[in-house]
Write a protein that binds this DNA or RNA. Structure first.
Length: 280
DNA sequence: CACCAGGTCCGTT
DNA sequence: AACGGACATGGT
């Protein structure tokens, strides 16, 4: 039985929440977005200031948790606006962004792939990975593939992961899949950097996107730019830059980081698109 | 064709 | 502790 649920898009906007880089498992369709998580799928549509979630009735609770729908984001937004400067502009631009609650293994694999990589290619590789090792399913008349289990991934070697476009990260995927499949803990308290290929940035992304550790502020090339250009920072070590932001923003770190990432990247992608979304 | 991308590892100072 | 090169590959 398929059901729908409606939210105001003021603090739950499909476009920005999906394209702000926290997930790679979605596709734009004629009338909205097809979103996958684990072995489930749902639809997100926007119309008249509303975000419409469509899912199997038995998956509705799952996707409510996934999209973090219970949390009050107006408070987060207002706090960012009060900070002024670039943060205020970024919050305005990404007002409808929510931080999802994604599955740990899936998030770990996706962000292993993300390093030194382009978002479109990350999405393509994740898709090929699911196609090859996931289970075929259908939702709303559309085929999709579940995210592979650690056990399924542990059966393949580097050559396979190179073939789906992982490049040099193939070794990271294989080692990590093997570790998790053989019982290594992957939870909110484990040291994520103990996984081969996981440094602070990837660890922070997994902490934030899978365990909702919003006290983490992942620093990548874009946030390094923000730090330099908009905050006038001079430190070069990304670890220190992250610690600096985290000390400043506390439990708002993760939310503010997403506002800033989405804003900075959108500016770089082209003024045209930006201007139409942000009439002065 | 260079340069860069949601970095990390590893060997040198 | 700090620094730099290597790493695969496709987008711009």
């Amino acid at each position: 039985m398929i059901k729908t649920e409606i939210f105001s898009s003021e603090y739950f906007d499909a476009e920005s929440s999906l394209s702000c880089g926290q997930t790679f498992r979605f596709e734009r369709q004629e009338d909205g977005y097809f979103v996958c998580s684990g072995n489930k799928a749902c639809l997100l549509r926007t119309s008249d200031g509303e975000t419409v979630l469509t899912a199997e009735e038995s998956d509705l609770a799952y996707f409510n948790r996934y999209f973090d729908t219970e949390r009050d984001y107006s408070r987060i937004y207002r706090t960012a606006v009060q900070c002024g400067g670039v943060l205020s502009r970024a919050a305005e631009y990404g007002k409808g962004i929510r931080i999802f609650n994604q599955q740990p293994f899936e998030t770990l694999v996706c962000f292993l792939l993300s390093q030194n990589n382009h978002i479109p290619r990350i999405r393509a590789t994740v898709h090929k990975l699911c196609e090859a090792l996931g289970e075929k399913r259908t939702f709303f008349g559309r085929e999709y593939y579940s995210f592979p289990t650690p056990q399924a991934m542990a059966m393949f070697g580097e050559d396979f992961y190179r073939a789906v476009g992982a490049g040099y990260r193939a070794r990271y995927l294989r080692e990590t899949a093997k570790a998790v499949a053989s019982g290594r803990a992957l939870d909110g308290t484990c040291d994520l950097t103990a996984f081969f290929g996981v440094g602070r940035k990837v660890a922070d992304c997994v902490s934030l996107f899978a365990f909702h550790r919003t006290d983490r502020f992942p620093v990548d090339t874009w946030l390094e730019k923000v730090y330099r250009e908009d905050f006038g920072g001079t430190e070069k070590d990304r670890n220190k830059i992250a610690s600096c932001f985290e000390a400043q923003f506390g439990d708002f770190s993760g939310y503010f980081q997403q506002y800033l990432f989405y804003y900075k990247r959108s500016l770089a992608k082209g003024k045209q698109e930006f201007v139409t979304k942000n009439p002065m």
